[in-house]
Design a binder for these strands. Structure first.
Length: 591
RNA sequence: GGUCCCGUAGUUCAACGGAUAGAACGGAAGUUUCCUAAACUUUAAAUACAGGUUCGAUUCCUGUCGGGAUCACCA
């Protein structure tokens, strides 16, 4: 690799010139800023203590050494303490010739047998997916693609939270007020139907609490003694006792929900290799906990509830089984982790879960360690920030949740209106047009979400629809489509580049970006950050658009130059498509 | 209150401890007889505050102020 060669050579230079030992890691190589000559830059300030010379003199000596020893370096210049290298044209041309037609340029061939497991989505079956799930799904999916591009063997798993008190609330409400309504009779998607009853439960529950407090009962007590809540808890106990009626109702409603989820996933372009259901993992969790009690690692209190004492780790006691013997979230997660480890022996188990659960994952790992499972530290919480609305966090109780299906509908409608307005689909068949605006709508939505650093909270304003201009998915899609159109019109075959041509600086800028792609994939994998890929793709598209605007390609009369620019264009289109692919975004052939 | 995260142009996002802090949207001014104007060009505009470490700090450390998350027999 050119970059590591440069660092290595600088390290050798510093060693031979000044006797200072350093590894190539100690050298900060960066891209040369636009306003200076050259492609790569090194700051020599750290070496001046050893050289006992001015930064300028030090940089000049190192530059001369590297120029003499690396054929790739054609020349160098020094500005203050910064050493700028100019790379030989021949190097760039060879690079272009050898990779321009690779569709998997920058990808590492899968060679490793070790498994990385990644969990994402993890929906509850009592309500439909919302904007928060969208970020989760897109992140999980994209990180998977990026890890695969890094040669990893990745297994995508979903964990469906299909049991618990929240599901019972939907079930109870449907039982009481549903009149036998089904997705078929109501015309509602199954997940939306279940969600409707969850909302209904809360409505009546609040009403009951209001009624009780009006009678002078304290709110906290009212919440616990509400007949609806008691009935939901009773239902959960019956469920764990495998009561036939309850199980049947549960299976029926869950089946509706799964059908709805499946549609949403398909539309989002998301899938899984394996789906776990908490209903079949929580028992494993319970038995792990019981085993822990028997071994004296966990505490059973007089009321029969079970706790993990984490005070010596600086945390509190954590409940693992309720006094009535039913399990909690943590119990389920212990069981799921255990089963997964048994099944895959994964080297790493990545959980894509919001940062509101940071504490939960700290506890999960500590409890597993306490129980003696040394694979606890294979668990990594890929903690991502919340999607916030202008008014703050989404609250289902306040009805401010942005529904995933609704949002995708709106995006498509906007894409359609926009395409119509611009006259973009006038000569499209109706089916092709429909596909186009679906692709653009999803491109805009996915890019909007993925361009933000996963760890950071992000803001979504529902009243301003997501843009299609500027730093957006459609901008990159458009750049790709324009190149494709060029290539169609270039009737002659595109051949390897001969070496005697002038390269303009705008062209070098593009080549340098293309050259950087493999290391972007690597760093994005290490950081689990699709945002790095997204920002790279934008930079490349922007750079190409400037080139396209300013430099003639098809109408260039010099055949050799024309060919060179077409090669550059084809390569760029390939990388744009590849990078967007890592984000789960399609790029159209024309738009 | 304890713990954790975050404060960058009007707004939404960038910036392995490196040069004059980059983009996009919005604002102002332009570009189409020419490869797709969902594009391009020019322009105004920002590191919350106070210290410290460093040749060099938006980045690391401490404190202040502001915002968020979490600390459930919820998930």
């Amino acid at each position: 690799m050119l970059e590591s060669k440069l660092c290595q050579s600088v390290a050798t230079a510093v060693n031979t010139l000044y006797g200072l030992q350093l590894s190539s890691k100690d050298i900060s190589l960066q891209k040369t800023r636009k306003e200076f000559e050259g492609e790569f830059t090194i700051a020599v300030f750290p070496f001046v203590r050893a050289s006992k010379k001015s930064p300028e003199a030090t940089a000049t000596e190192i530059g001369q050494y590297v120029k003499d020893n690396l054929t790739e370096v054609e020349d160098f210049n020094v500005i203050k303490g910064f050493l700028n290298f100019q790379i030989a044209k021949a190097y760039w041309l060879t690079f272009l010739n050898s990779h321009q037609n690779e569709t998997d340029f920058g990808f590492v061939k899968a060679a490793e047998s070790e498994v990385i497991m990644i969990e994402y989505s993890s929906p509850n079956t009592n309500k439909p997916l919302h904007l928060g799930h969208i970020r989760n799904n897109l992140l999980g999916w994209s990180v998977t693609q990026i890890l695969k591009a890094n040669g990893k063997n990745v297994v995508k798993v979903n964990l469906v939270n299909d049991r618990g008190i929240h599901i019972c609330k939907s079930m109870l409400a449907w039982q009481k007020w549903g009149n036998g309504e089904t997705p078929l009779t109501s015309g509602l998607k199954g997940d939306h139907l279940a969600g409707k009853y969850y909302v209904l439960f809360n409505k009546y529950y609040q009403a009951e609490i209001a009624e009780l407090t009006a009678k002078g009962i304290e709110k906290e007590i009212a919440e616990k003694e509400s007949s609806l809540m008691l009935a939901a808890q009773e239902m959960l106990r019956k469920w764990e006792a495998k009561d036939e009626t309850i199980i049947l109702l549960w299976e029926t409603m869950n089946a509706w929900v799964y059908e709805g989820f499946e549609q949403t996933y398909r539309r989002m372009g998301i899938d899984f290799d394996k789906t776990y259901y908490e209903s079949s993992t929580y028992l494993s969790g319970k038995s792990i906990v019981e085993k822990g009690v028997a071994e004296g690692k966990l505490i059973r209190k007089p009321d029969q509830s079970v706790w993990a004492d984490l005070t010596s780790e600086g945390l509190d006691e954590k409940l693992l089984l309720r006094s009535d013997g039913t399990s909690v979230y943590m119990t389920q997660d212990l069981g799921t982790a255990f089963l997964r480890h048994e099944e895959y022996q994964a080297q790493q188990m990545i959980y894509v879960v919001g940062n509101e659960q940071n504490y939960h994952f700290d506890v999960l790992k500590l409890v597993l360690q306490k129980l003696g499972y040394n694979w606890a530290d294979t668990i990594q919480h890929l903690s991502y920030g919340m999607v916030e609305l202008p008014a703050g966090k989404m609250k289902s109780r306040e009805g401010t949740v942005v529904d995933a299906d609704d949002l995708m509908d709106e995006m498509e409608k906007t894409a359609y209106d926009k395409a119509l307005e611009l006259g973009k689909i006038d000569d499209f068949e109706s089916e092709e047009a429909r596909q186009l605006y679906a692709v653009i709508a999803m491109g805009a939505l996915k890019y909007f979400i993925l361009k933000v650093d996963p760890q950071k909270n992000m803001l979504f304003n529902p009243t301003e629809s997501i843009d299609f201009n500027g730093h957006t998915g459609p901008f990159i899609q458009y750049t790709h489509a324009r190149i494709k159109s060029l290539i169609k019109k270039a009737s002659a075959d595109i051949s390897p580049i001969s070496e005697n041509i002038e390269i303009q600086s705008k062209e070098i800028d593009i080549i340098r970006l293309l050259h950087e792609y493999p290391s972007v994939i690597k760093i994005a994998g290490e950081n689990r950050s699709p945002a790095l890929i997204a920002n790279f793709a934008f930079e490349l598209a922007k750079e190409y658009n400037g080139f396209y605007q300013e430099i003639t390609i098809l109408k260039e009369e010099n055949e050799v130059l024309r060919n060179f620019r077409l090669v550059l264009s084809v390569f760029t289109a390939n990388i744009l498509k590849s990078a967007m692919g890592l984000l789960g975004i399609d790029v159209p052939e024309r738009m």
